[in-house]
Amino acid sequence: MKGLITIPVYNEETTLPSIIRGFRSRCPDYHCLFIDDGSSDSSRALLEEHGVAYVHHLFNLGYSATIQTGMQYALDHGYDYVVFFDADGQHRLEDLLTILALAQKGESDLIVGSRYLGNRRNRWTLRRAVHRSLAGIVTLCTGERVTDTTCGLKLITREFMEVALRIPTEDMGAELITALIRHGARVAEVPIEVEERKSGTSMHHSWKVLFYPLKALLCLVTAGLPEKPPSDK
């Protein structure tokens, strides 16, 4: 099976060099594609300098659009699956390799990294409460046990990349997982560890952590609606 690792990048100049070095030393046999989502810092120059494969959005489109770019690229270039790995230095390559090994077995269509599987951390925060609540709702809606919907580390097979691009999902967390499960995706979760963020800010920072659940819940409603037939436009 031919897989593509995509790394969405947005203003990650401090972590990018170590991420690139890590991929070169630990995953030399895998194809990696960096997606620069219109960074305003030197991220693009770093990608160019290190000679890695990358695509560049003219301006910032947001995380969901970047994920969709990765899926579109993987489909266009005949990859069997795509894995998403954050460039902020929080994900560990060990966890990525575990997910890749699981993908080779071909038993799952959607593999999601979970920070909460196995009670690895007990510290409760508002963000964690929101994440766990959303995961609970997804579990209720789909009947599949999901413990973490917002983790950026996930793998999707070709068949379900097509589904994900056909039903334009706006939230790449709860909505995407719900929609794919409803379309018959076999989901698996892998316990992962996340490192503390070394620089930059999370996309769910400050007030956004309160706004995000509302948005995600709205998206979940649409994930349950029947699929719209393709228009001729």
Binding site: I35, A53, Y54, V55, H56, H57, L58, F59, L61, A65, Q68, T69, Q72, Y73, D76, P168
Partner: peptide
């Protein structure tokens, strides 16, 4: 916005 996103994506692929 949807059209713009598609154009930016298309541009990114062409540029690559």
């Amino acid at each position: 916005q949807e059209k713009l996103t598609q154009m930016v994506r298309h541009h990114a692929f062409l540029e690559q």
